[in-house]
Amino acid sequence: MNVVASYKTDIGTFRRENQDSFVFLKNKTGQALAVVCDGLGGHNCGDIASSMAVAMLKNFFNQTEWKKIKTDDQIYDWLRTSVETIQQEMNEYSVSHEEANDMGTTMVITLIANHKAYLVNIGDSRAYMFNDKGLKQLTSDHNILNLYLKNNPEKLAEMDVNKTYWKALTSALGPIKNLTIDIFDLSITTPSYFLLTSDGVHDFLEEWEISHILEKNSSLKSKVKMLIKQALSNVSTDNLTAMLLLVKD
């Protein structure tokens, strides 16, 4: 499989700094790694948390002998061990940097390997897939809303899901954060797009807007620029990061 990518980040118009971090990597044995992390606003050192997570994943990916990792179980183990090692490193960092004790970040990963997409989700950054069957949100936000609906699905019709408090996170990656790691995989029908976004993008776009942009006959770079531009036009109040992968034969 051939994987190409385009990505863009923007500080937005409401924040003093950009705490999003991201990376896209490919290697000679056919694996491709895409990561978007969103440092938690309102917490000290969110930028350090997101950049640390991305930098460590980059090192793990580049240092791994991928020829020896062939099965789903091995890939799951690699992903989980990578995340847990990052959390351990954050814990150690916070011991000598007290100001970073409350730092945290979301994380969404798409690893393309073995003709599959392996997904990791922590927090509320997202991964979508778009192909001839349309747009599908792959990850589920780790927030109070989804935790409540998991136990009370019949209450959805009664709720105002747009209330801000529903978006409070129930999982994040950081020294004292509650960590839930969702890991799953799916087979890839080519060609398919995989879109990774921080909440400054997807919280300010309707799914029909995302689909409309992705189905345009334009380059990956143009699609990513349009996603960011549309979210800003819809008055995004956060940092914005979008990474778009095209997987084809």
Score class of each variant (00 low, 15 high):
75 I>Q: 02
58 K>S: 14
106 T>Y: 05
176 I>Q: 08
180 T>S: 10
120 V>Q: 13
102 D>F: 08
60 F>M: 02
122 I>L: 10
235 V>G: 00
88 Q>V: 06
244 L>R: 02
78 W>T: 02
63 Q>M: 10
202 H>G: 05
156 L>C: 00
236 S>R: 00
199 D>C: 07
57 L>A: 03
193 Y>P: 12
81 T>G: 08
158 E>C: 08
110 T>M: 13
85 T>M: 10
132 D>W: 00
81 T>N: 15
89 E>H: 14
129 M>S: 15
154 E>M: 11
113 A>W: 03
211 S>I: 04
64 T>P: 02
25 L>K: 13
161 V>M: 13
45 C>Q: 07
23 V>K: 00
168 A>N: 11
168 A>C: 11
85 T>A: 12
217 N>Y: 05
232 L>C: 08
65 E>V: 10
104 G>P: 09
66 W>F: 10
107 M>A: 15
103 M>Y: 09
39 G>C: 02
22 F>I: 03
130 F>N: 04
193 Y>C: 04
205 L>A: 01
113 A>M: 11
27 N>F: 10
46 G>C: 09
109 I>N: 04
127 A>N: 08
161 V>W: 01
201 V>T: 05
187 S>Y: 07
197 T>V: 05
160 D>W: 02
218 S>M: 07
35 V>F: 02
25 L>H: 06
127 A>G: 07
145 L>Y: 05
235 V>D: 12
95 V>M: 09
232 L>T: 10
131 N>M: 04
29 T>R: 14
246 L>G: 00
61 F>W: 01
62 N>H: 15
37 C>S: 13
183 I>C: 11
116 K>R: 14
242 A>V: 07
67 K>T: 10
137 Q>S: 08
214 L>A: 07
170 T>R: 02
